[in-house]
């Protein structure tokens, strides 16, 4: 199952600047493992022992996986995963 993962700006240091990475995976969790294999360090930034970190959201299409089946959410070919971290910039 090939899916595309959209990499947000703060994590592009791990992907040599790539904003999209194609990976294989039947579930969101498997796709993220495949992402870690390609770009080591991702897992640490995205997940903790309880699952997706609380200041990171992962979407399949428009939907937040927390409101689907989390890391077990099934994927189909061509799905787009978006990693959307909390960002705070604005004034300063």
């Amino acid at each position: 199952m090939e899916v595309t993962v959209r990499i947000p700006t703060p994590l592009r240091t791990l992907t040599a600047g790539a904003d999209e990475v194609s990976v294989l995976g039947e579930t969101v969790g498997a796709a993220l493992e495949a992402l870690e294999a390609k770009h080591p360090g991702m897992r640490e930034r995205l997940l903790d022992e309880k699952g997706v970190r609380r200041f990171i959201n992962i979407y399949v299409g428009e939907e937040d996986v927390r409101f689907l089946e989390g890391l077990s959410t099934k994927l189909k070919a061509g799905d787009q995963l978006s990693i959307v971290p909390a960002i705070a910039g604005g004034a300063a």
Binding site: T13, R53, R54, F55, A86, I87, A88
Partner: peptide, 20 residues
């Protein structure tokens, strides 16, 4: 609801990486 907690300082995007 969106982000239950702020990132700990060591995982927040660093100042050196910033710029806008």
């Amino acid at each position: 609801c969106l982000y239950p907690e702020p990132p700990p300082p060591h995982l927040a995007p660093s100042c050196q990486e910033a710029g806008v």
